[in-house]
């Protein structure tokens, strides 16, 4: 739940008086309107200047910029992010579901294509365990042929969990059909 949240970077206000009650949320708005900042507030990476955010834990995320550990393999990146031991079969099932070719599983992620890396990020976030999942432009780089399957799998995986997606893609918005929060962006001070 987001209640009357405001946030600023140094002297630049980004969010003012934002509220949302839904457990799933689609955040929209132009570049620089504060979508990623709002996801960071929900994930607890930033503290609001005013208002409050209450969100369940454990948490997971697909970050806008991947945030993969480059020297680790695809499997390593998924395993390292999850507390306790994750079975090989569970990771394999997740990779298959997001369409990551088997040949990529044990390669360092620095050798993978943009689309493959994105699928690793999705697998990492969608594995069971997290009660809150935030997705920041999650399907960037995924080819048009497999996109509908991956999108559908993501929605199914998030059912019963709290989730937020930030996206510019109208297809994502209509597919997820979650309550929308539009951030218009704050006027820049002179």
């Amino acid at each position: 739940m987001i209640r009357d949240v405001s946030f600023a970077y140094s002297q630049t206000p980004v969010l003012a008086g934002i509220s949302a009650r839904a457990s799933t949320l689609a955040v929209t708005g132009p570049n620089g309107s504060g979508k990623t900042t709002l996801l960071k507030l929900i994930l607890g990476l930033l503290a609001p200047l005013a208002g409050a955010v209450t969100a369940p834990a454990p948490r997971a995320a697909v970050f806008q910029d991947d945030r993969l550990i480059e020297h680790l393999t695809a499997v390593g990146n998924v395993r390292v992010a999850h507390p306790g031991k994750v079975a090989d079969q569970a990771i394999a099932a997740e990779f298959r579901a997001v369409g990551l070719a088997e040949e990529a599983w044990l390669r360092p992620v620095r050798e993978l294509s943009g689309g493959q890396r994105r699928r690793v990020c999705l697998a990492r976030a969608l594995l069971p365990g997290a009660q809150l999942v935030c997705l920041d432009e999650p399907f960037t780089g995924i080819d048009a042929e497999t996109l509908p399957t991956v999108r559908a799998y993501t929605r199914d995986r998030l059912s019963g969990r709290d989730a937020a997606i930030a996206t510019h893609n109208p297809d994502d918005l209509s597919f997820f059909n979650w309550p929308r929060l539009h951030l218009p962006g704050l006027p820049k001070s002179e």
Partner: peptide, 10 residues
Amino acid sequence: GLDELARVFA
């Protein structure tokens, strides 16, 4: 960014 990753995934 990786520090944030570690924090999010605890």
